[in-house]
Design a binder for these strands. Structure first.
Length: 557
RNA sequence: GGGCGAGUGGCUUAGUCCGGAUAGAGCGUUAGCCUCCUAAGCUAAUGGUCGGGGGUUCAAAUCCCCCCUCGCCCGCCA
């Protein structure tokens, strides 16, 4: 592992200024790291910042730690700039050529990460897969950071939506179209059933009855719910596989009713001072924590609501894991906060929640019920078709199977990258033009840089690894490579996977520049060796980055 | 009405938590680069009152206050 330059510099600055809290900023083109302590000390020392910076630099020039690591110090006006030397660069490149670069030692912390958890009443659409891709990328980053992780899908198998689907199967004419996916078929029944309910509100009572039956464990009704949900999940599995998204466990909501956990948690909640009863109705008054509305736990007909089952689920997580992380859409912010608050009142660990904002269509919000959505399957199919055309244009000499395979990887890269590169707190409007664009700020662009590196290495044959870099382009690239482990750490610490997307793009960019300026295969001797070593380091770092993003690091395209 | 999130060139966006050097990118437009390692590429040019107004600070896209616009939420739905 590369030594921690930040810590060394902070320590040196603390020693010579007496200031404990040292902030380092990115030096941009001036330096690798920079300090602005001189500004803050100006008033205190009654001296000009420029003078202070000069004095500090004079002291730091004699610092042994900095000298040992080859970190150069220089004052530029009031700024104190640090430039990493060849020892740092060599060590970074050497580390980056190793398999698994950027991985951290195994940790004992057991984490559960829940993502997607869409209601099984229709196919996953482009909004749901934002959840899947953020979640899956985070999961990959956590594993790379050494954590023991279990990824879960919480199956909402007893909600009103499912009851409506079950009602539809019982009362409506329906046949599955030839070759139709199960989840798409379920959506048709769901949409049709909702239309019927609009025309005849009396149906609502029949749906309520179904919900009571399933809660009480009526075998026939339970079986119907299970069947419908399972069929829909079979459809989801295909979509998830195509998106390279993996879940380790599917947790069924109804299990928490059947095993008695929900009843037990309701019993505990009843004893909380915030509990409010009105006959059978049980709700929590969380006004003291800033929640204006009452948090209903049990209906007046005695059945539990989603919140109660969710509390039981999260209590189970609290018992079995050290940390729980939930990836939830913006519409779940309030109930997520209420859940956290209630779990704390119960003395359980509250989950950490990663929120993301909505994806809408140009014509407005998506709605499964109204049939207004772009399904993930359609997106994958369209993008793959486009990718196949691109591959065929660029590489007509390849056989069809190879082109097909490359197209699938490119499509996956396009979709996953497009979604993960955007900060989760930004709401977006789905745009076909952007989804089908494979240029520059895209997943395929990064794959291309990787394939290019692979191609060079393949043509090079064997070479002696050499870590003594010289030119500015070489050193810039090496320093970019060196950032990778830090990026993984930051993604995990801040739960922000888009940082990795940004990094991978910057690395690909830096490599492309290098590629056009510094000939590798045509250089000779030591120069050729060190550039090939650098290409190997880039290739490996890009590969690790892509795989952590859930994108295939294909060797040719 | 209340709560949360967002507002950065024509379009999409990074940076905002933790204030510092000329606000980074991509698309678009314009002009170059394949007898040379994959042109899904590279080099330039173009384009920015960082929603608006106050304030704090040596220094504000970033912190504080007010306002505007958009999205989401505020159910005995999930």
């Amino acid at each position: 592992m590369v030594f921690d330059t930040t810590a060394i510099i902070k320590k040196a600055l603390t020693e010579c200024t007496g200031t404990a809290d040292i902030q380092l900023t990115d030096g941009g083109e001036h330096a690798d790291l920079a300090s602005t302590v001189a500004f803050g000390l100006a008033k205190q020392r009654k001296q000009a910042p420029v003078k202070i910076a000069q004095d500090i630099v004079a002291t730091l020039k004699n610092n042994k730690d900095l000298a040992d690591q080859g970190i150069a110090v220089e004052a530029k006006g009031p700024y104190i700039n640090f430039v990493f030397g060849s020892a740092y660069v060599s060590a970074a490149v050497k580390a980056a050529t190793q398999p698994g670069y950027g991985s951290f030692p195994k940790k004992d912390t057991r984490i559960t990460l829940e993502h997607t958890s869409a209601n099984p009443n229709g196919p996953l659409h482009v909004g749901h897969i934002r959840n899947s891709i953020i979640g899956d990328t985070l999961a990959r980053a956590f594993r790379k950071a050494g954590y023991r992780l279990e990824v879960q899908y919480y199956v909402n198998d007893m909600g009103r939506q499912i009851a409506i689907v079950v009602w539809g199967f019982d009362h409506l004419e329906h046949t599955r179209h030839e070759g139709e996916k199960e989840d798409a078929y379920i959506a048709r029944v769901y949409i049709e059933a909702n239309r019927e309910i609009e025309n005849d509100p009396g149906i609502t009572q029949q749906v309520d009855k179904l919900m009571q039956l399933v809660e009480s464990g009526d075998p026939g009704t339970v079986k119907k719910f299970r069947t419908v949900v399972s069929r829909c999940l079979d459809g989801f599995a295909v979509t998830m596989k195509n998106l390279n998204v993996k879940h380790d466990r599917f947790v069924w909501e109804s299990d928490f009713v059947r095993n008695g956990d929900t009843k037990r948690i309701i019993g505990k909640i009843e004893k909380l001072p915030q509990a409010r009863h009105e006959e059978n109705l049980l709700a929590l008054d969380l006004a003291e924590f800033g929640f204006a509305n009452k948090y209903v736990i049990r209906r007046s007909d005695g059945t539990s609501v989603y919140a109660a089952r969710d509390l039981a689920f999260h209590t189970w997580k609290s018992v079995n894991f050290d940390r729980a992380i939930d990836v939830l859409g913006a519409d779940h912010k309030l109930i997520g906060a209420q859940l956290q608050c209630t779990l704390k009142l119960l003395g359980e660990k509250a989950p950490e929640i990663v929120n993301f904002e909505f994806v809408s269509l140009p014509e407005g919000s998506m709605s499964t019920r109204a049939g207004k959505f772009v399904s993930a399957d359609d997106l994958i199919a369209e993008v793959t078709k486009q990718a196949f055309e691109e591959v065929t244009t660029r590489r007509p000499e390849l056989d069809e199977d190879t082109r097909r395979s490359i197209a699938e990887s490119v499509a996956l890269a396009g979709i996953r990258y497009d979604i993960v590169k955007i900060s989760p707190e930004k709401s977006t409007v789905f745009d076909w033009k952007e989804a089908l664009d494979f240029e520059r700020q895209s997943g395929p662009y990064i794959q291309y840089a990787h394939a290019r590196a692979c191609s060079i290495l393949e043509k090079a044959g064997t070479f002696a690894e050499c870590y003594d870099l010289e030119t500015g382009q070489e050193i810039t690239l090496a320093k970019e490579i060196a950032k990778f482990p830090g990026v993984i750490e930051k993604v995990v610490a801040e739960l922000r996977p888009h940082l990795l997307a940004t990094y991978a793009h910057e690395l690909a960019d830096t490599f492309n520049s290098f590629y056009h300026y510094e000939p590798v295969l045509k250089s000779e001797g030591k120069v050729r060796d060190r550039r090939l070593t650098l290409v190997l380091a880039v290739q490996n770092t890009l590969k690790e980055s892509l795989e952590t993003l859930g994108i295939d690091a294909i060797r040719t395209m």
